[in-house]
Design a protein around this nucleic acid. Structure first.
Lengths: 206, 206
DNA sequence: GTCTATAGAATGATAGAC
DNA sequence: GTCTATCATTCTATAGAC
């Protein structure tokens, strides 16, 4: 390995470590509550190194948010516009539940950001999310006019899908506490997914 | 009005103002992110006055959390153990939606606290919330064995009730943004409430 | 009860040696 | 690329005049 690649490798390694722990710290404390010192400690790096890779705390936060977007948009595609309601919604719910399980911190950062009034991602809400929402509302309205599901309000159905799936990430601590302090195992995640899926599908007459 | 009552009145007035604005600031920024200065500014009081009424930032936070508990427990009682599934759940959902509308900041503080791992209220989760949850699980299980609703997992049904109703408070900013920047009006809140109620009731076969 | 002033610690960010 | 040392600012909390 030549010098340039070694340097690049070290760079990628440090970037990954910092971003990983930044996501956890931002999830725990929000933007204002998180400190560069805490992220540095979690990453086992001096605080100055964080500022070598990210000029400001805000720049680091933006990068963390960006990565969550990417994952989030993947799940959005699971809401296949061509499939039947049962297929589309089952697939979307399962994908979102998987994200809640594998990336709880990302979901928490997103939740924190929205709770705080979305100071950083408000343009994203108004553009990307709004466009996506409008396109899915059209799909749902078509299902309704085709008589494939009950005449529910498409917007509120989407909110229900988001709320129920993200709850398992954002309120993870509460769910774990009420599970006797143990994290949900494979079977319990499957039970949760099936319950959400079954109740919503039956609830809208799909 | 004598001196003692005047003094007490001023005290209650200041306490109310501080607690009201503290709830908003804590909702926006979480415990770590909120500053006494920000709460003082919002309350139009010098920072020192906050420390006259509350010895520490943590003491003020605890008081805010306590008030949220009270409201939250009221809603819990709406889940009448003697009523039919339709009555009990309709009443509970409506009550929780009203709280999301009238006390969004309280819900946000609660959400923030749980997202952060509930450092302050963990004992409450393990005692009061757990006992309440267990008692309602019993009720739901009785509904199931009486054939009044489908054999759903009671625990996950409760999570769905919490998630869907609290979403309108915690993700208020997102809901408003997707509503064209306008807060939901009376009709829209009624539509939201009816949608949640109808989908869940039908979804569990009630 | 209210306020100004300030102590003492922690914060975001930078300089500069290695 | 990494780290120590440090600056300017902001934070929680308090002292003490009114």
């Amino acid at each position: 390995m030549n010098t340039a690649r070694k340097r690049n490798s070290a760079r990628q390694e440090s970037l990954g470590v910092i971003l990983h722990h930044a996501e956890q710290i931002f999830a725990e404390s929000g933007f204002r509550g998180a400190t560069m010192q805490a992220i540095a400690d979690a990453s086992s790096l001096p605080k100055a190194n964080l500022h070598y890779y990210f000029p400001t705390k805000l720049a680091l936060y933006r990068e963390v948010i960006q990565r969550i977007f990417t994952i989030w948009l993947e799940a959005a595609d699971s809401f296949d516009t061509s499939a039947s309601p049962r297929e589309a919604l089952s697939s979307y719910i399962r994908k979102k539940m998987e994200i809640s399980r594998t990336h709880p911190c990302g979901s928490k950062v997103w939740a924190n950001e929205v709770i705080q009034g979305a100071p950083i991602i408000q343009d994203y809400l108004q553009t990307t999310l709004r466009a996506w929402t409008d396109s899915r509302i059209e799909v749902i309205n078509r299902w309704i006019s085709d008589g494939k599901i009950d005449p529910v309000d498409p917007r509120h159905l989407l909110y229900m899908l988001w709320a129920t799936t993200q709850h398992y990430a954002d309120f993870q601590h509460q769910v774990v506490t009420l599970n006797g302090g143990k994290r949900l195992d494979d079977t319990q995640w499957e039970v949760a997914t099936m319950n959400v899926t079954n109740i919503i599908l039956k609830g809208i007459g799909a």
